[in-house]
Design a binder for these strands. Structure first.
Lengths: 364, 364
DNA sequence: GATCCTATCTGAAACATTTCAACGCCCCGC
DNA sequence: GCGGGGCGTTGAAATGTTTCAGATAGGATC
C-alpha cells in the first residue's frame, strides 16, 4: 500500500519525490542541513547574514526536500499578506480587464500578488468579496464600487485597510481615488462631432445613477450650450445599462424617430453601447458614418476591431491601474499618508465611424 | 496625538472603532465575552455545540470588537487554504473570462475563493504564478497552460496539489482535464459551410503548436476529404497568434489571392481572428456573407455583436469552468481519485455572416 | 448516594514562519 | 592574558486559529 515511486518514470524534473507525506517545513530543512531553523529563515530572508558555506548547505537541503515557503505562516507572523486585491465592477467589460492589467503590473513591481474579484454590479457580491479580502488580510484593496458611498466601503477604511477607488471619484476625500475626467471626455466627444458638422446629436447612456454617465452627459451639454446650440438638438436616449444589448435597443429607438428629429450622430456612454448601436444601425441599412456617425467611450480593443472602426474617447486604462496600485502601496507604507485624488485626461481617437463625409443634409 | 474618534461623524455603521491598534483576535473576543477561546472557536465552527446564551454573548462581543477571522491562521492550522486558482492563458480573450466565471460559480458553491491569474501566453509568467500559488497552499489549480507538457506542471502534480487542465486535453492522463471536442468543432463548421454551397474554403489560424488549432483544422480536413473534395480547395492561411490583429493580416492576404483561388468562405480558429478578418474584409469592400462567408469559434459575446453577426462554434464555456471546478474539488476531497477527462460537445450558432445567399458563382 | 450520560466549556498543543536577545567564537589590540 | 567587537548561529517567543482530551456540572437511573 505504501506509495512507491513509479519505476517507469525516473524523476523527470530535478526535485525528487517529497520525503514523506507532509510537505517539508523549515524545521525539516534545518535538520537535513544540520543547522538551526533560525538559520534557515535567515537564508530565506537575509542571506547576507549567513556564511557562504552554510547558505549553500541549506540551499541544497531545500532543493533536495523540495521545500516551499508556507505563505500562511509567513503572513500570520507578519500580520499582513503579500497580496493586493481588485474588485472590478463588470467582468464582461474589457475596460476593467485592462485596468486590472495595469494594477497587476504595479503589484508585480512591489512583488505582490493580485487577487481579482468581480462584483458584477451587485452590491451583495461586492460585500461578500470584501469580507473575504478582509479575512485574508490583504495589504490593500482597489475597487470600482457598485456604489461609492456604500457603508461597507467606509467599514474597510475604518479597519485601516488601504483602499483606492478606481475609475470613481473619492467624493468626500476619505480615501484615495484614480479617475478620468469624464466631463472633459464628454466635451471632446461633442466637440469632435460638431467639428464634423453635426447639428443634431444624441447621447446614448444610462442609468444616470452611474457617475460616469452623468458626467459625460454633463460635459456634452456644456459644450452644446457654449456653442449656443438649441438644447433640444442634443437628445438623451437613456439606457438601462452599459451593455451591447442596450446599445441595440437604443439603435431601434433611434431608427423609430421621425426623420426630422433623428440625429446625424450619436455619442455613446461606452463602447459596448456603441458596438450594439453600430450593429443595429448596420442591420437596418444605415451607413456609418454617412447616415449616422458614432462616438464611443473607453476605446476597448473591440472598438478598433469593429467593422466600421469606432471613434472613441480613450482612457489611459493601464496607467489608471498602475497609479491606483502605486497609491494603495503608498498608503500601506506610510500611515501618515494624505489621501490623493488622481485625475487623468481622456483623449479622442478618431476612426472611421466619424470620418469626415460631406453630409447629405448639407451637400444638397 | 491619540487617534480620537471624529466627533463630526457619530459612528455611521454598526461596528465601533477598533479597541486599540491591533485587530482583535479570538483571544480578545474570549476575554470580552468572559469565555475561553475554545468556546469562541466553537461559536465560529460548530455553533450547535454552544448553548444559546453563550453563543449570543460571544456574538455580541465579536460585533462590538469588530472581530474578523484571520484566514492565514486558519490556513496554517488547516494546512490548506480555502482558495482555488485559475491561471488563464490570455486575459485579452473574453472566452477565458467566461470560463473563469464558470469556475467561480463552482468555487462559490464550495465556499471557496478564486484566485485568477493571467499567464499571457508566457511560460515564465505562468511558472511564477504557479510558484506563488504553491506557496499559498491553494487547494487546487485550474490552468489553461502555455505548454501542457511543461515540467512545472508535473511538478505541481508531484507535490500532490490537485490540478485540472482547462480547455486542453490531459494527454497522458496524469491529471484531470476538461475540454471541448475540437475535431468535432472543426467538422461542424465545415459541414455548415459546405451545406451553404461553398466549394472553396480557407482555414485561418495558427500557430499549429496550439492543440486547438491543430484539431480544428484536422476536423475540417476530415469532413472535406469525406465529402470527396479536392484538398487544394481547403486552403490553410496560417497566423502567428489568435488575435484580432492577426485576423486583419489574414484578411489582407486573402484579398491578395488571385480571384480564381480566392475562397468564398473562411473558417477561423477563433472569434478574435474572425472579427479582425471581418473588419478587413469590410474595409476593402467585400460584402459578408455575399462575397465572403465567415465562421468563427468560441461564440464570444462580441461575435454576436459584430456589425455582421458572426456565425460561430459555441463552446459551453461556463460549464467547462464549472466542471473543472468540480473535478479539482473531487480530487482534493478524495485521495484515491481517478483522473478524469471531461469532453464537451461544441455547437454551431448560425448567424448572418454565413446566411444563405444565392452565391454569385452559382447564380450566373 | 453512586453511577452514568449528556451538554457545555476549558486549556494546552500544534501548525510554519519570523524575530530577537543571547551566545560562542575568533581575532585584534593592549 | 584580557577586554572588546564582529560575525555567525542558536533557541525561544510570538503570531491567531482549530482541535481534542479532559474537566465540570446537572440530570436521570439505579
Amino acid at each position: 500500500m505504501a506509495r512507491s515511486a513509479e519505476p517507469k518514470e525516473p524523476a523527470p524534473g530535478r526535485a525528487p519525490a517529497p520525503p514523506h507525506g507532509r510537505t517539508p517545513s523549515v524545521k525539516d530543512v534545518a535538520a537535513s542541513a544540520g543547522v538551526s531553523l533560525g538559520t534557515v529563515s535567515n537564508v530565506l530572508n537575509k542571506p547576507a547574514a549567513v556564511s557562504a558555506a552554510t547558505r549553500e548547505r541549506v540551499e541544497r537541503a531545500m532543493a533536495e526536500l523540495g521545500f516551499v515557503r508556507n505563505e500562511s505562516a509567513r503572513q500570520l507572523r507578519a500580520g499582513t499578506s503579500r497580496t493586493l486585491a481588485y474588485v472590478m465592477l463588470d467582468g464582461g467589460n474589457p475596460f476593467f480587464h485592462d485596468v486590472a492589467r495595469g494594477i497587476e503590473s504595479g503589484a508585480e513591481d512591489a512583488d505582490l500578488s493580485l487577487f481579482i474579484c468581480n462584483s458584477d454590479g451587485r452590491a451583495a457580491r461586492e460585500a461578500k468579496h470584501l469580507d473575504r479580502l478582509v479575512q485574508q488580510r490583504v495589504q490593500g484593496i482597489l475597487i470600482t464600487p457598485v456604489d461609492p458611498s456604500a457603508s461597507h466601503l467606509r467599514e474597510i477604511g475604518r479597519r485601516g485597510i488601504p483602499l483606492v477607488m478606481v475609475d470613481r471619484l473619492g467624493g468626500t476625500g476619505d480615501c484615495c481615488s484614480v479617475a478620468v475626467d469624464d466631463v472633459l471626455g464628454g466635451r471632446i466627444a461633442i466637440e469632435h462631432l460638431t467639428d464634423r458638422g453635426h447639428e443634431r446629436v444624441a447621447f446614448v447612456g444610462g442609468p444616470e445613477s452611474i457617475g460616469q454617465v452623468r458626467e459625460r452627459l454633463l460635459g456634452a451639454r456644456q459644450v452644446w450650450s457654449e456653442l449656443g446650440r438649441d438644447a433640444a438638438d442634443l437628445i438623451h436616449l437613456p439606457t438601462e445599462a452599459l451593455t451591447v444589448a442596450e446599445g441595440r435597443g437604443a439603435g431601434e429607438r433611434l431608427a423609430g424617430l421621425p426623420a426630422r428629429r433623428r440625429p446625424t450622430a450619436v455619442f455613446c456612454a461606452n463602447d459596448l453601447l456603441a458596438l450594439g448601436l453600430l450593429q443595429q444601425a448596420t442591420a437596418i441599412g444605415m451607413r456609418v458614418p454617412e447616415d449616422l456617425a458614432i462616438v464611443g467611450y473607453d476605446d476597448i480593443e473591440f472598438a478598433a476591431a469593429a467593422a466600421v472602426p469606432l471613434t472613441s474617447v480613450r482612457q489611459p486604462r493601464e496607467e489608471l491601474g498602475r497609479t491606483a496600485a502605486r497609491l494603495v502601496l503608498a498608503e500601506a507604507g506610510d500611515p501618515a499618508h494624505r489621501h490623493e485624488q488622481a485625475c487623468f485626461v481622456p483623449e479622442l481617437v478618431a476612426r472611421a465611424s466619424t470620418a469626415a463625409v460631406r453630409h447629405p443634409a448639407r451637400k444638397r
